[in-house]
């Protein structure tokens, strides 16, 4: 098995076991970003968010480090719970949390059911990203995806956040064109059944190329697989992409995107038999 270095730019490790960490490390994963999201069960107070944020800022990085993986996170009020008035006060506490060293973006923000409450939360959090000099991880809705993307792009334009500070995530064949035209980074979640699969990902890479593309497993508590990033790397090699292109998609692109925060700390020796420039400790930005 050829050695790859992998940065999973979107994975919910809170929902995964230590066996997953071990398997990810064996597959080449050396860094990841865990966005805050919906836990599958509604929260009933802001305090529940604070405990969750504490976990993303303390316990998960510790667990990841035990397995040789650098852990960073993105924090936000997720679109689904932006509709619940019991949760929205978390927006007032976010500025304090966005200062933290491990926070490399605001996210996941975006639309779920495209409600006025979601409009408000999205705009407010894009503003916070600007104020904190952070990029934003913007997910595109699962239902009514193309309309949702257009509405998202409108809000992004109004926010004044530069497109290179934004990744649009969970993209597919129907949303790639408009997303690419926006100048934002392009995120693809590779899932066992839904979202993208490795073969479709290869077709997209053939047409679009490897620039500005981020591939993630988005693994969580649902039917998902934390090794999907590795599978895409293997599929790319099998399809004739070079090792340098695989490294660009699976490592250098996420490092470049989240590095814009100035807070990424990676201690990543290149895999044996390959030599990449620098990056022993990388901060990016600033």
């Amino acid at each position: 098995m050829i050695a790859l270095r992998i940065f999973d730019p979107h994975i919910h490790m809170t929902s995964r076991t230590t066996d997953d960490y071990a398997a990810m490390h064996a597959a080449g994963v050396r860094a990841l970003v865990e966005p805050s999201f919906w836990l599958g069960q509604p929260r009933t107070s802001p305090a529940s968010f604070y405990d969750y944020f504490d976990s993303l800022l303390g316990w998960e990085p510790f667990r990841a480090a035990q397995h040789g993986i650098a852990h960073h996170c993105t924090l936000a009020l997720n679109p689904k719970e932006a509709n619940d008035p019991r949760c929205t006060p978390v927006l007032d506490a976010l500025p304090r949390y966005l200062l933290k060293d491990n926070v490399v973006a605001v996210g996941e923000v975006g639309y779920d059911a495209m409600t006025p409450a979601e409009d408000t939360a999205l705009a407010a959090q894009l503003q916070l990203a600007r104020e904190h000099g952070l990029p934003a991880l913007v997910h595109t809705p699962h239902r009514d995806k193309l309309a949702g993307l257009h509405r998202t792009l409108d809000v992004l334009r109004e926010s004044g956040l530069p497109p290179e500070h934004v990744v649009l995530d969970h993209l597919n064949e129907t949303t790639l064109g408009a997303a690419s035209d926006s100048g934002c980074w392009l995120g693809f979640s590779v899932y066992p059944d839904t979202k993208m699969d490795p073969e479709r990902m290869i077709r997209i890479l053939r047409v679009h190329g490897t620039d500005r593309v981020l591939v993630n497993s988005a693994a969580d508590w649902g039917h998902s697989d934390p090794l999907k990033t590795r599978h895409v790397g293997d599929a790319m090699l099998a399809a004739g992409f070079g090792e340098d292109e695989v490294d660009q998609v699976l490592w250098r692109n996420p490092v470049a995107f989240y590095g814009q925060s100035g807070r990424l700390v990676l201690d990543s020796a290149p895999p044996e038999g390959q030599s990449y420039e620098g990056n022993s400790i990388l901060r990016g930005g600033e």
């Binding site: 500025p95 200062l99 933290k100 060293d101 100035g262 807070r263 700390v265 400790i281 901060r283």
Partner: peptide
């Protein structure tokens, strides 16, 4: 608002980290 010194306390890792 958050006292300035508490902001510094939060940001010390990226200002005085290994890099």
């Amino acid at each position: 608002g958050l006292p300035p010194w508490e902001r510094d306390f939060a940001q010390a890792g990226r200002q005085c980290g290994p890099h």
